[in-house]
Amino acid sequence: MIERFNELRNTALLVSVFVIAGCGGGDGGGADAGAADAAPAESPVDAATAGNVAGMVTFSGAAPMMAEINMGSEATCAAKHSTTPTEEGFVGGENGGLANVFVYVKEGLESLSFPTPTAAVVLNQDGCMYRPHVLGVQVGQDIAIRNSDGLLHNINASPTENRGFNVSQPVDMETNRSFPVAEVMVPVRCDVHGWMNSYIGIVDHPYFAVSASDGSVSLDGLPPGDYVIEAWHEQLGTMTSNVTVTTGGTTEISFEFTEVMAGSPVPMGEPIDLLHPDGHQAVDH
């Protein structure tokens, strides 16, 4: 009887030791996933045969009005802006150009694998605004989140494919994060300053770009072949375009978002929103 009990007890102890060992320390979606395993491998793309994709992202129709941001609750940040900042859900440039559109190769690069860049991409908090508003990184690449305001921000990322994080920076400082799984797009917000939001696109290759204020965008150094390129906008949804890249050539691409697309369901991780349980709506405060 006692022997049997001893056996059971020892087994139970061993099991619990393994369970505890297994549970300890997770990884992924976390800090300092940074550097690639081996020395930076060479790019699998032969520069001699590569081509480019370039073009414009435009918007036609009545541009949505963006509300002014009331920074009254954070005087230090308000002082950094010479004109009152407005929300950045829709940033249209001259000549119908649409900024902050995330453009990337969605299909066509499956056979290649790309090394993780060692350099970090900077997401800056300056004047209580994220700079840039939309950014792209590669899987595993460090994002250096920087606080340039000297006051409390938190950085709350709500992905669906990756593990989220929610960390604070009470002073000027820098925190590194990276994502191990490709995901378009991860919303990031500050809860201390409710108007602050940004979006991070994670892809497993270097062919992504964010459209500039005039709507221009380009993807350089692609191997020749057929690709599906997707353009993502936080309020207007997504569009795709099929392109063929030729050696040494620049294939033109254009995305024309229109007024009727406003309010489309936008694929990304969604923060829980009790007042708008039917989905992410245009920010209205």
Binding site: L152, N154, N166, V192
Partner: peptide
């Protein structure tokens, strides 16, 4: 109420 509880003054 979370990380920024201390800043919720008005």
């Amino acid at each position: 109420c979370g990380i920024g509880h201390t800043t919720m003054g008005g």
